[in-house]
Design a protein around this nucleic acid. Structure first.
Lengths: 347, 347
DNA sequence: AGCAAAGTTGTTAGCGCTAACAATTGAGGG
DNA sequence: CCCTCAATTGTTAGCGCTAACAACTTTGCT
């Protein structure tokens, strides 16, 4: 049975017959097309008998609603646009997956537009692309401080959810509590007895970069420790490597909190080459817990973020905006620390 | 109504009025709506004067064509569906980026559906999702041998491009020459004097896994070497680690060609723990050249694939199918080897 | 029984666009 | 001057669906 239905609905018969319409279903069920429309839209006022007859006709014909026609009249495309940068990175890619899952579950389609570099122009191009498509809402997966401003300037007339934003602006936000994550990392080091704890931050114009640096600082100040050891990287393993080469000769810190796992990898490599032992000479903590982190040399203590959950929350937020007409808000996902072999009490 | 009011809160200028239609542009330009349609569709028979007047009106009103209305009448959505698994991995994510870039450049929208596990059912669900949306074509980014069969059984009536397939079936394909990549890796090891070269393959029911294993075998046989040292992993760093622990005590090979960089990372970690030195005791080659590979311990010799180019080729292929009505075909991207410190002549 | 209210179904009118055809104009030839 | 042909522009009819309302049927209460 299932086989046959599936077959009918995907029938390759482009030249002969077109796909069945509401009218065809109506005829077969002996009702008006509007009644069929009511059935597929779950309107309450349809008798049980009629509904069953219509559903049978739908199944027999393998009817599927034409999205374009529905969109035209309802002015809703049931499509969400995800505006993303750095999609080849573990975090954003998984967030996208979370959005996609929640969207499909809710009957929405997900359209994507990737931007190569963060600029008002590229964001504007992508947003225009989405407006041309008629998306119902936009999820901005561009955790850069410039994103918010660029998007606000566009005066879009659809809801926007910004990942990484705390929702204080005109848009809703969904974020992982980056400060908390940073505090967890630093407090773990403090508990082990470290007094000189440095930080390799991400770019400070990236929301996550700034937040993690701020969390690091807060945790240090609260413990009465100095917050002077900070260097800015660019998220890449290469930048972590370069910075690691300098730190290896400086001997300033007994522990380093690194802004992400990739820079931590570079740092570990540089330390390895320079003969700095981790964790005996210096402890290292990363951020993200990408799947490879447990196989670094040594396995990396890091802060785990649930990116898929973040993506799902984004979509939940979007659905609330779309269907309940809710106002802007924010949702926060909590990170947690994963302790591995790259951290130990100082010598 | 309540919803629309909520949306209005995102509007800047025109809070009451809806977007301009063809009719509005026509009125302003003093022509018929059909003439405006001709202008935006670049029909030849429009006088220069009229065209300019219409274009001015379009610009003044900020007119944008309604995609739903156009799709309804043309039966084309200008949307490509990308059916993907493993989107959080470096390769697939970058291929998606290539598809997106080429698609947007060509005026197409990109819709995605991710599948959690490869099965006929999940592929069927995703395909149905795309058909509901009315996509013009599907790019299948699921390099699994089961994909092709599952998709063919669905009798889709839109063009399909399968990544990783060589295009011998009903669908077009775009692929990186995996066998060539494997040969490059193995020949590099042979040139360095290795005689016992093992392979940690990906799952053999994944196209890439099977192809790379086959390339490894061919290169060995051609050089008159034995092809008996092969173990199957699951692409993850964890599986590479587990296999590495066994290999470390076996001492069977002087070099290992690993199916991807992540398993290679796990292998390096296991070797490191067991005191097996790379490359002095065993040489290791990976596959993919993900950005971190150069910072492994030691930096990994690996085979680079240009995933974005692969994605672009997919989209080119799709456009050819869509607009020129071309038949099925295939396009092949060539990989190249990147030599780093994880390989050296045997002791 | 009688009549309002609620439940159920049908009819009509578009949503904004393009395809097909009709109408108009101007140029050139007899 | 008429006619033909080509170039340009306008008119009409849907694409498949839902909203709004109209029409009919049942129910419940006096």
């Amino acid at each position: 049975m299932r086989c046959r239905l599936a077959h009918n609905s995907f029938m390759a018969n482009s030249s002969e017959r077109r796909l069945p319409r509401l009218e065809d279903v109506a005829e077969r069920a002996g009702v008006s097309h509007q009644t069929v429309s009511r059935v597929i839209n779950n309107h309450p006022n349809v008798s049980k008998v009629t509904r069953e007859r219509v559903e049978a006709a739908i199944a027999e014909l393998g009817y599927r609603r034409n999205t374009a026609a529905r969109s035209l009249v309802t002015r809703r495309s049931h499509t969400i646009g995800v505006l993303a940068s750095e999609l080849s990175q573990y975090g954003p890619a998984n967030t996208l997956l979370g959005v996609e899952q929640a969207a499909r579950d809710a009957g929405y389609f997900v359209s994507i537009a990737a931007i190569r570099e963060v600029s008002a122009e590229s964001i504007s191009d992508a947003a225009r692309h989405f407006m041309d498509q008629g998306v119902d809402g936009i999820v901005a997966l561009v955790p850069h401080t410039g994103t918010l401003q660029a998007l606000e300037n566009l005066n879009l007339d659809v809801p926007v959810v910004v990942v990484g934003s705390s929702g204080e602006g005109r848009f809703s936000g969904a974020m992982v509590d980056q400060k908390l994550g940073a505090r967890l990392a630093v407090e773990h080091l403090i508990e082990q007895g470290h007094k000189r704890i440095g930080h390799i931050s991400g770019p400070r114009d990236w929301i996550d970069g700034a937040e993690r640096a701020e969390g690091w600082r807060e945790a240090l100040l609260q413990a009465g420790l100095a917050d002077d050891l900070i260097v800015e990287g660019d998220w890449s393993a290469g930048s972590g490597y370069g910075i690691g080469q300098q730190l290896a000769v400086a001997h300033a810190a007994t522990a380093v909190f690194v802004g992400n796992d990739q820079m931590a990898l570079g740092l570990l490599r540089a330390f390895g080459e320079a003969g700095v032992r981790v964790p005996q000479d210096v402890s290292v903590v990363g951020f993200d817990d990408q799947p490879e982190a447990g196989y670094f040399t040594p396995p990396l203590t890091t802060v785990r973020q649930d990116f898929e959950e973040l993506g799902r929350r984004c979509m939940d937020m979007m659905l609330a905006l779309l269907e309940d007409g809710a106002g802007a808000g924010a949702t926060v996902v909590e990170p947690r620390i994963v302790v591995r072999a790259s951290t130990a009490p100082p010598a």
